[in-house]
Simulated assay, not measured.
Amino acid sequence: MITSDKKIAIMDNTLREGEQTAGVAFSKEEKIDIALKLDQAGVDYIEAGFPAVSEQEFNIIKKVNSLGIKAKIMALARTSKADVDLVYEAGCHGVTFFIPTSEILLKAKSNMSGIEPQKLIESSIEAVDYAKRRNLYVAFGAEDSTRTDFEFILRMYKAVIDAGADIVAVVDTVSRLTPVDTYNMVKEMKERLGGAPISTHLHNDFGMATANTVSAVMAGADQIQTTINGLGERAGSPSLQECVMAVKELTEYDFNHINTHIFKELSNMIIKYSGVNFSPLMPIVGENAFSHESGLHASAVLNDPKSYEPFSPDLVGTQTKFIIGKHTGKNIVKHILEKTFHIDEISQEMLQSVVKEVKEKGSSARLNYDDVFKIYSDIKRRNKNV
């Protein structure tokens, strides 16, 4: 595969969007740990929170800014000078503006019902101009932009870019995009805005957040927004781990600046701090992501891991696991006894006896490597007593 030299930036939203997951609230210490680990992972931007929420939130964001990390710290703001002032006073590198633009959101928000579209553009220009005069990097997103008239979004984005916005985003607030839609929207937006930098803020209501993010990258997006483990409102956001590995493995683009080797560690940290447990089937870092039970599959993996693994588990800080059960074959039993318990000489008769008993017990209970060794030891002892 021919690779592209273009660097795709990552803005991780775990500390803000991720904390909006139902039932999740990170402590100050946890937010600091997460920020430090994200920096170790090499993400370009960290959205640390929404300072207008509370004095406590403001102080936490200010603390994150004092850590001296390489990632650039961003904070969320409405298009108001007061919100910009809080972002600036917290010491952030930049501001992430949001303003609702779809008819349904404008009607649903009582303070914005009936507002004229031009007023939205004017308030956006004023906010961007004010932020730039504060020397802030400006990321601008029209909330629910995928349910807003596209021509209006283009007009708004051209206006804020002219006012100094550094990047504008496709914001798919309630997941109205398919991968094809995402590709077409990003590509057309990129072309009609004269190549201006494009970001994505997507959601996972239909399980397509990762696929849509990959499509956006392929269409020319310059930045993607993610969360660890895909935390976020409702069904969540694009997963940092999934997006990075999918882009690396499936497209011409890469994330060479991202330290993927700590992805499993990062995932475990978020599970611990959020209290949100994920399915073992979660891609990339889930418990089953590199697990094998079927005898034929497991044997093939022993011969060549690429046969049934999309990439080396070492790349994301995990390892191949063989699950012991009714589908386990003799090659895996032999491998476990030899490599884990250092049993060098196993007769075919003994091996067949162990496999038979493993399959029988594995039909009603999940076994582990120690169980295999115990079965082996019990059979060996019984044979001696015959």
Rank of each mutant, 00 (worst) to 15 (best):
E55Y: 03
R381T: 11
E293T: 08
I161F: 06
N385C: 07
T14Y: 06
E252Y: 04
S364C: 05
N383L: 15
G94P: 01
I167N: 01
S237F: 05
I332T: 13
I284E: 01
S307F: 12
V160T: 07
E19M: 10
R16H: 05
F58K: 10
G114R: 08
K339T: 12
L86S: 04
N135I: 00
A165N: 05
D5M: 12
E252Q: 08
V160Q: 06
G42K: 06
V43N: 06
K359S: 09
L240C: 00
Q40L: 15
T328L: 14
D344R: 10
M156C: 13
H93M: 04
S27V: 11
A127M: 10
G207W: 12
K109Y: 12
I10D: 00
C243E: 01
E47R: 04
M218T: 13
H257T: 08
K72F: 05
T146V: 14
L266W: 09
S66I: 09
K339C: 03
E103T: 07
N204A: 08
I270M: 15
L337C: 07
N368Y: 09
A246K: 00
R133F: 09
K158N: 11
V53M: 14
D304P: 00
V53C: 11
E30P: 01
V24M: 08
Q225P: 00
V316M: 06
A139I: 01
S4A: 14
N277L: 15
H261P: 00
V160G: 03
D378Q: 09
E233R: 12
M74T: 01
H257R: 12
R234E: 01
F152S: 04
K63M: 10
A75H: 02
I69T: 08
V87F: 11
I324Y: 02
A35R: 02
L193W: 07
E29A: 13
V84F: 08
D12M: 10
E29D: 14
P100G: 07
R176I: 12
R192C: 02
L296S: 06
L136E: 03
S237T: 09
E249T: 07
V174H: 04
F58G: 08
K321D: 05
P179T: 09
Q352H: 07
G329F: 10
L177K: 04
Q20N: 11
N385V: 14
G164I: 11
N368A: 10
A159Q: 08
L231R: 04
E293P: 01
F263R: 03
A77S: 15
V171H: 08
E249A: 07
V168F: 03
D254N: 12
Q40T: 15
A75W: 03
K81D: 11
M269L: 15
A77N: 04
M1P: 02
V64G: 01
P310S: 12
V84L: 13
T200R: 02
K359I: 15
I343K: 02
T328F: 12
H261M: 13
M269A: 13
Y45Q: 03
Y88G: 00
V316D: 01
E29Q: 12
N368F: 10
T328A: 14
A9D: 10
I69R: 07
I61R: 02
K339S: 12
R78Y: 06
T227G: 00
E19H: 03
M269K: 09
R133P: 01
F150G: 00
